[in-house]
Write a protein that binds this DNA or RNA. Sequence first.
DNA 1: GGCACCACCGGATATCTGTTCTGGTCTGTG
DNA 2: CACAGACCAGAACAGATATCCGGTGGTGCC
Lengths: 206, 206
Amino acid sequence: MITERQQELLQFLESTQRRTGFMPSTREIQEHFGFASQTAAVSHLRALERKGLIRRAPGKARALVLETTPEREPLIDVPVYGHIPAGFGESVAPVTEGTLSVDARSLGVNPRAKLFGLKVRGESMIGAHILDGDHVILEIKEPRNRDIVAALIDGETTLKRFVLNRRQPFLKAENPRFPDLIPARELQVQGVLVGLIRGASSSAFA
Amino acid sequence: MITERQQELLQFLESTQRRTGFMPSTREIQEHFGFASQTAAVSHLRALERKGLIRRAPGKARALVLETTPEREPLIDVPVYGHIPAGFGESVAPVTEGTLSVDARSLGVNPRAKLFGLKVRGESMIGAHILDGDHVILEIKEPRNRDIVAALIDGETTLKRFVLNRRQPFLKAENPRFPDLIPARELQVQGVLVGLIRGASSSAFA
DNA sequence: GGCACCACCGGATATCTGTTCTGGTCTGTG
DNA sequence: CACAGACCAGAACAGATATCCGGTGGTGCC
């Protein structure tokens, strides 16, 4: 299915991307393999594209993308935010604290959904089995009744259950020790809970 | 430290890379922001480089690398088992139902640890905030007192808390409706809980 | 006011880079 | 044998791309 030379080329693409962060140009491929002509490099690239192993954007420089193995194809990278400022979703970009990677299938989310992550602080949602230190994954979309959402209250983001009571939304903690929150004016929902990841350091496991 | 415009640029770089697989050129940046001159895009890139947020290779096309979020490297693939047969760990290979990928850092586990996954059935561990349908990740190692473990009872694998009572181990459910299990002869612990992943389809979110 | 940034415009230039064309050798395969 | 396909040389072209130059206007600071 794939020839030895093409395998070498594919390996060179992969290692170059890992080393430098971007793809080699046709001339860099040519030089690496000692070709006297670019045609050799180009024809190999075309062969790889024809076999579906890479994708190319015509006319654009270094526009190669490896078609990774379909085994863990729908991998999603979720940015984890520390705080989410008020203007989120419009112009102000939040501060990224790290990234979290999961495959979309086992999480059961759409790979193209707009997602972000937060680290849970406090035990206000322990009734919904969400603990202090858990990572929650949220999708940016409109909340429905009884969804768990991240919302902005007094300049701080908190995780609560979104409840509609006679068309009036309020936020309900899943812990009797925490009070319900009725928004003073406007309720800013930043995301709807779609996933949860609990790590080894969680106190629940010890 | 970083201006609003530069943050926008950084976000555009990130989203473009995720969408297309490679970085935008200066002209594509220019077009996206509606600049009339490339200089605007270039000066922003230079500012981001000066602040250490991106790296550039001089003279090369699309040779941008984000210095932020470089780490997706320690990604681990965990096989998810349907049932675990008795001989597990010695010779018999269990039936794989799928694979689950997470980055090791956010899970807080050793990337080289021997891990496997199970899908939780039933609500016997609800007191430890583990729900029906959750995916749990287990490490193959010796259990310590009060670890949550996957153990073999009567030919079936169940998740329970491992408790030592006067050097005699037994299994405790975290749900008063389930009885404790005292092993008849030998207790076969197959793995120790180190992580948990809850997906969008979980009933806890709806 | 000077000074250092930031955010841009407008134009020019060199070079980087993909693409195309015309050849060639070798290895299979029907 | 003819034919297809992988693998390569050599050269030229056109578009894509980064870079450099000089300028404008604004903000904040000492």
